[in-house]
Amino acid sequence: MKKTSMVVFATIASLFLLSWIVKGMFSEGSSPYLDGFLVTLAAFLTLAIMSFLYKDNPYYKFAEHLFVGVSAAYAMCLGFWSTIVGNLIPRLSSTVSDFFQVNYIEGDYNIFFVIPIIFGILLLMRLSPKAGWLSRWPLAFIVGTTAGLNFVRYLRSDFINQINSTIIPLLIDWNGFGDFFSNMNFSATGQLVMMFSNLVIFVGVVCGIIYFYFSKEHTGWFGRASKVGIWILMITFGASFGYTVMGRISLLVGRITFLFKDWLEIIS
């Protein structure tokens, strides 16, 4: 270890200890030093992750690996307790249910529930280099059922229902040009705005699809429509980008609030 890294480590460790002690002394609750430790640890991990913006460093790596490890383990434990213990065992055996202290569901016993056990074990065969091919069977089952299930759902929600939503009148409450201009209304739900929205939806859908139509060269009017399509796509991506910025800033605000409020207590 280099001298500078030792100094950095010592500084961070002493700051951590200081924060722990100070937080422990001033926090109210049944276990002040435990609370103090937890808040300090959370603050340390937050700062460790943020330190990546300066440059890659061991503290960032530590925090990242900790996060990956903890979330994987948490997901695994929860998966075991909610899927195997929560869903499967209560339908299979009252003795095992009693062992795990879950309610045995009377009358729900079904021999078919043995199949998922077998498939689950086959899936774990992946870990064995010799019997790894066995895991393809349950995978095939998963892929097949998911594809079948999704095919119908997507076709219905993202295809048929979306066509349904595109079928909208372009002229709303139309009583001729004169009437339209003399009664022009700029409110968000007014005739003008609604007509414009419907036009954007219709043109956007048609031109967007034309852009993704690969069987015809994009020349002439078709090419122009496809140009409109790409513009609409770009605007969508811009909106998406903007939303992402907002989302990321929200997370930053969340972390900064944590640091200032829960850790440093400079705001209430």
């Binding site: 295809f159 066509i163 595109t166 079928i167 909208i168 009148p169 372009l170 859908v205």
Partner: peptide, 15 residues
């Protein structure tokens, strides 16, 4: 591509 063409046609007729 044909499905997309169908959407365009249906959307235009529908509108």
């Amino acid at each position: 591509d044909y499905a997309k063409a169908a959407i365009i046609v249906l959307a235009v007729i529908g509108v």
